[in-house]
Structures are given as C-alpha cells and as structure tokens.
C-alpha cells in the first residue's frame, strides 16, 4: 500500500486550532487545566492528553509588525522511527499499513525509552505510564475516514493523502523542498515550509540520537554475536587446549 502522510502547510494555517479540538473530540481526551501565560499558544506543550497543537511562532518581518506563523506539532510518524527502534516491548509501537507509527497501550511496558529515542520530543505518558501520542487516527483510517485534524482543517493547512502525491503537489505549488521528504527515511508528517525549518522552530536535519544508532548497529549485534562467540571460543578452547593443567600435574605427568 502506498504510504500515507499529513502535509502541513503553515502558509495556509490560520491558527484556529480546530485540529486541536477535533483531535480531543475524536480521541475523547480530557482537557488540561491551563492558564494564559501571555500567548495564544495553549497548552504550552504536548501532553498525554494533547496529541497535537499549534505552535504560534512570531518572527521579525520587514513588511509587517511581525511574521506570525502557525505550525502544527504532533508525532512525525518517521519511517525510521527512533521510538520504535529503542522500544523494548514488541507490539507496543508499530507501523500501520499506511506507515503511521501507532501504539498499543496494552503492550506498552511504561519504560519511556521511546521518549529518548524520539528526535522530535513527541511521546508522552499517561497516568498509568502508558505511551500516549498521535496515532494518525488509526481507527478512523481503518474505517475509511481521514484523521480528525485534517478533516476539520478549514483551509487545507493539514492535508491527509498519499505521501508521494502530497509531496508532488507541494513541489508543484512552489515549495522547493518539503520538510521530512527524506529525513529519517521520510517522515509521515511533512511540512511545506517557505523558509528555513529553523524559522518555524524545527530542526534542520533531525536525527535519531547517535548513541541509539551506535547501540543499534554495534552493541545490539554484539550482545548476540558476543555471547555466542564466547560460548564458541570456550568450546574451541576445550577441544584444542583442553582443561587447565596445573604445574604440579605437569610435573607429575612429566
């Protein structure tokens, strides 16, 4: 099946946050008790009950008092997902056939390693220490619907569709580079940025932490081959050299 994705276009986003409410509605997430901290942005961050949010980014502008960008933030549904890589519990995090990173709370063991594995600081944990994040409305998609956020979005700032055609369409619309096109094997939440990702508060080249890559490429195989090798070496030693002989035995023998 062709990989699906969400194409997020801050240039089309009006910051209405219908996506935030729609997400809560569909996923039946309770509200956070928040306070106004001098910004439109609220809640301040993703939480176990806030799967997506709009970040309100103000950057200086030459023609206007300010440039006000609205950037939808959520799980990026990486192809090469750091969370999945590090997760010790099989089935707790898994890929849907559309390519989304979904989760199964029953299989989650609450170790929270995925928090460290995620380059985007997305996974959160609920009161029972189970992972909680955007799963691209896996259940809606299974029922032939699109995710709640993209369904609600009035301007098409969040679009759901076939990843390739979304990228193609975006390039046609004049976005030379789509953020997440190739990063981490290709993200499932891709962005049509007019300017450098940094301006939108995103990292230029997101990477899975190096230590995890090292662990994955070296330590993990070593744990497998290393112990096997140790056993094999022991056997070889036993056969070739045999049990240890002490001096006196040697003398005796001699």
């Amino acid at each position: 099946m062709a990989r699906k994705a969400l194409l997020i276009s801050p240039e089309l986003c009006i910051g209405c946050r219908g996506c935030q409410t729609a997400c809560k509605g569909w996923n039946q997430l309770p509200a956070e008790k928040t306070k106004n901290t001098g910004s439109f942005e609220n809640p301040a961050d993703l939480t176990p009950i806030v799967f997506n949010k709009i970040r309100y980014v103000e950057v200086p502008s030459e023609k206007d008092p300010v440039r006000w960008l609205f950037v939808s933030q959520r799980c990026m549904h990486c192809d090469d997902a750091g969370c999945m890589k590090i997760c010790p519990a099989p089935g707790a995090l898994y890929k849907t056939k559309e390519g989304a990173v979904a989760f199964n709370k029953e299989k989650c063991i609450g170790c929270k390693l995925c928090v460290a594995g995620c380059p985007f600081n997305v996974p959160r944990y609920d009161a029972k220490d189970k992972i909680s994040k955007c799963n691209l409305c896996e259940d809606r998609i299974a029922a032939g619907l699109e995710p709640a956020c993209s369904k609600t979005c009035p301007t098409g700032a969040i679009k759901y569709g076939e990843r390739d055609s979304l990228i193609g369409g975006s390039k046609k619309a004049g976005f030379a580079k789509v953020y997440g096109d190739t990063d981490l094997g290709g993200l499932g939440s891709i962005y049509a940025f007019k300017d450098s990702p940094k301006l939108y508060g995103m990292e230029e080249n997101p990477q899975i932490p190096e230590s995890i890559v090292f662990w994955h490429k070296v330590l993990k195989p070593l744990a497998y081959w290393g112990v096997g090798g140790a056993v094999a070496a022991s056997l070889l030693h036993y056969v070739v050299i045999g049990p240890h002989k002490d001096d006196e035995e040697v003398k005796k023998d001699g």
């Binding site: 809560k24 928040t34 439109f40």
Partner: peptide
C-alpha cells in the same frame, strides 16, 4: 466546553 477553555482559559 473544557476543550475550548483549555485553548483560551482567561481574559487577556
């Protein structure tokens, strides 16, 4: 509506 109040909780 708690979901709306979450987004804009207070007079500003």
């Amino acid at each position: 509506l708690p979901w709306q109040a979450e987004l804009q909780p207070q007079q500003f």
